[in-house]
Design a protein around this nucleic acid. Structure first.
Lengths: 278, 278
DNA sequence: CTAAGTATGAAACTACTGATACAGAAGTTA
DNA sequence: TAACTTCTGTATCAGTAGTTTCATACTTAG
């Protein structure tokens, strides 16, 4: 429906409301927006009115049905939790104006890191590292326009730890060649953040056809590659409204490398020794 | 039935979930808790699974019905909005002391980021960005074994903002060729962390001879290139005793890019438009 | 004080949501 | 490869939530 917030509509319409309807409004504002997400009967009881009154109240706000009203509440909630994260410190710092650009940037990045750590199930993270440490089969890496450098960075480190690390480079033509050798059970790590790269989806399709297992490292909006992925590690990337930052992906990569090194230390240490030697 | 947060249950149960159920889990974590407050059909569609799978998923979490699950979500939401700051995941995890590898890693990285921001004088940071935003002369980038990917990442972004961005690739032989065109007043951004790269020192020497201005991005132990640098941005990289992490460098790079974009918006926006167009 | 109009909740209705059963797909093992 | 297990989506059903109706209580005006 229109671009007005639900709370805004209540304040606008509250004068038109009847006594019982006002109780409903008060109740909703009192525990906003949770009460509105409950079934009508519960809303009614909590607000001290009947179901019918609540329905009339919702109708007065301009929603054509109760589900419609709930949808608006959910969208509002979603909006709020996605955009300018944590008004607490970053906003406070901006108000004081005593912090410079770098401080503000770092503060936001810290939020992203924390959220990312919370977003990623420990078991998924461990599964990825364990799989890498197994040191079986090949491990392919691919990324999009900017994330390709993350793939490169990860590749450079993985090469020290295990064998069979291959990079899928950006040009679709050569990619096809590189995919020929993919065997069932091989591992593929794909980086994809929005705007998502169509060619990566193709690569993922092909990899799946060849029965490779895909690990996807993506942002909170979840690349379409997720459909094909056995394991997904989603990171928070949003900064303010104009900018997405990949710092959380980078840190995740380093964490994976660190953990994998730890897990495969006996093997990896020999390997690293021989590489360093030359 | 009570006492556990829904997100907590997901992390607990995720290992015994099937592939499609995991999609549901990820979907919910991705837009938490809103998606769970929607009707099953919508949840299912958004998560890329069927209604039945979503039902099985919530059943796996230990809820005896979908409405029951939604009630839990609402109560959690209510709880969170009442307490001042959300202490939901990170705080609780730290209290329990059961934090996993990723959490610990992220915590250390956060320390590094904060220290880095403190270590870098605002004036130096601003000077670098301003110099980049001037958009005069050429800008060369070079890095060492691993940091070369940071140089590449920065190059890819800088190209969108300004003209004359060049990358000095890793092979000493070709580097010499690329340095021929360097002119007085050109800018060079060098990444160097320990163990410091001897060839970068050579490059820096040559650049200085040609009167280019060097910006050095390095770690807390300070690359020897610092001798030749006009501006130095040192970052904290130390993690525990065995491992150095470059995440702080990466975030610094992104901060520089963001700030430079901001400073040169009138010029940069046109440029970006024309690049996106093709 | 009475009558017209409005507000309200109880109860009936219907539509849609959540639950279930089943069949086919996918994956696993021998 | 074939048999078997497990997973997953479709189709169906049952129950509940949202909606509507209507009789009653309350206001307000005449």
């Amino acid at each position: 429906m229109e671009g007005k917030s639900v709370a805004g509509r209540i304040h606008e319409a509250i004068h038109r409301l009847t006594a019982a309807e006002k109780r409903a409004a008060r109740g909703l504002l009192g525990s906003y927006p949770t009460l509105g997400l409950a079934p009508v009967a519960e809303f009614a009881q909590q607000a001290g009115a009947s179901s019918a009154t609540v329905l009339r109240f919702v109708s007065q706000l301009g929603y054509k049905s109760y589900p419609d009203f709930q949808r608006a509440l959910r969208e509002e909630l979603e909006e709020r939790s996605k955009s300018p994260l944590q008004r607490s410190h970053s906003a406070a710092a901006q108000e004081r104006g005593d912090s410079n650009f770098l401080d503000r940037f770092v503060t936001q990045e810290v939020d992203n890191l924390r959220s990312s750590a919370a977003l990623i199930p420990a078991s998924e993270f461990e599964a990825v590292c364990a799989r890498l440490a197994e040191n079986k089969g090949s491990c392919y890496l691919a990324g999009g326009r900017f994330t390709d450098f993350l793939a490169g960075y990860m590749e450079a480190h993985l090469r020290l730890i295990r064998q069979g690390v291959r990079r899928l480079d950006g040009r679709p033509a050569t990619r096809a060649d590189q995919l020929i050798d993919v065997r069932a059970g091989d591992l593929a790590i794909i980086f994809d953040v929005r705007r998502y790269d169509a060619s990566l989806l193709d690569v993922a399709t092909e990899l799946t056809a060849r029965r490779a297992q895909i690990v996807l490292i993506t942002d909170e909006w979840m690349s379409p590659v997720a459909r094909f992925a056995k394991l997904v590690l989603p990171c928070r990337t949003e900064m303010g409204r104009t900018w997405d930052a990949n710092g959380s992906l980078f840190t995740l990569v380093e964490a994976v490398i660190a953990r994998t090194t730890e897990l495969s230390w006996p093997t990896a240490s020999k390997r690293m020794g021989s590489i360093e030697g030359k």
